[in-house]
């Protein structure tokens, strides 16, 4: 055992350099005044106070709202797919899961640009509508386009954990439920759904975290005016140059996510 314990040391150094120290720096920035001289530290709550302005609160609300909708849609669409896949013979299941993950092999930017081409005012869909003699529809730079992009991108993160929990379920439990008088619907509600909840919670956690903190997809599909937390942080660092405020938002987001995750963990434990 001791021998193996030594092998963890490089990882500890790695984590310290690339995770812990940057986090400390972010915290430091968040609690200090503007100006990048580290030597003249003057602590302040100003950055957090600024965050309470209604513009910023609205951004947070919108981000969480979009995150919740995206997660809900992923669950609604992903669960049936995961369920259907889990009914196939094992070999077919492996192939189908591979198919689910294939889009993830292509760079997310490229996929998002593809959506732009499909949804644009003179994009594929509108050209088709035009051919059919119908009026063009404006889809780009709306909630619809952003949610569509988010759902398509993060769907696999919902499907895979749910599929895992469904496929490892003992099939004789389903037969036992039928045997004891449960209709297919009751069997789903009382046995299959209950036993897949750990996978569902994992999926929700993954998709929600990803969609709350994303910034590329809303930027491309939502346009420059579309502000989510991720875009706000990005703009503070890149265009506005207010690293202190950007750090404060990052910290707030991290804390909210931590609270969310511990809530999910507790739900998971209760289910068990």
């Amino acid at each position: 055992m001791k021998h193996y314990k030594k092998m963890i040391q490089p990882y500890v150094v790695w984590a310290a350099l690339l995770i812990v120290i940057p986090l400390i720096l972010i915290a430091l920035y968040a609690f200090t005044e503007e100006g990048n001289e580290v030597l003249t530290l003057s602590f302040t709550w100003k950055n957090f106070a600024k965050f309470l302005e209604s513009t910023y609160v609205n951004v947070v609300v919108k981000s969480f709202w979009l995150g919740i909708i995206t997660t809900f849609l992923c669950l609604l669409l992903g669960y049936p797919l995961a369920f259907i896949i889990s009914r196939f013979p094992e070999k077919t299941q492996a192939t189908l899961i591979l198919l689910v993950t294939i889009p993830e092999w292509i760079n997310m930017l490229l996929r998002t640009y593809a959506w732009m081409n499909i949804l644009a005012d003179n994009g594929i869909i509108n050209q088709l509508l035009d051919l059919l003699g119908m009026r063009p529809v404006n889809m780009m730079y709306t909630d619809f386009s952003v949610i569509l992009g988010l759902v398509c991108n993060f769907m696999p993160f919902m499907i895979i954990p749910i599929h895992t929990s469904l496929s490892k379920m003992d099939k004789s439990l389903i037969e036992a439920a039928y045997d004891l008088g449960a209709t297919p619907f009751q069997t789903f509600r009382k046995v299959i759904w209950k036993l897949s909840i750990p996978g569902v919670l994992n999926g929700i956690m993954m998709v929600f975290l990803l969609s709350v903190s994303t910034f590329v997809i809303p930027k491309l599909l939502g346009g420059g005016q579309y502000m989510l937390i991720g875009n706000l942080i990005e703009s503070q660092f890149i265009s506005v140059g207010d690293w202190n405020f950007g750090s404060a938002i990052s910290l707030i987001l991290a804390v909210i996510i931590l609270i969310f995750m511990s809530l999910m963990k507790r739900m998971d434990k209760q289910e068990e």
Binding site: L173, L180, T183, K190, E272
Partner: peptide, 27 residues
């Protein structure tokens, strides 16, 4: 099967892991 007056004891028992003993029997 759910319409038959027949019940089965399975080879590997197939008890519902998310239910306790009483809830399994009461299913």
């Amino acid at each position: 099967p759910y319409k038959r007056e027949i019940n089965t004891v399975f080879q590997k028992y197939a008890l519902f892991p998310h239910l306790n003993v009483a809830d399994n029997i009461a299913f």
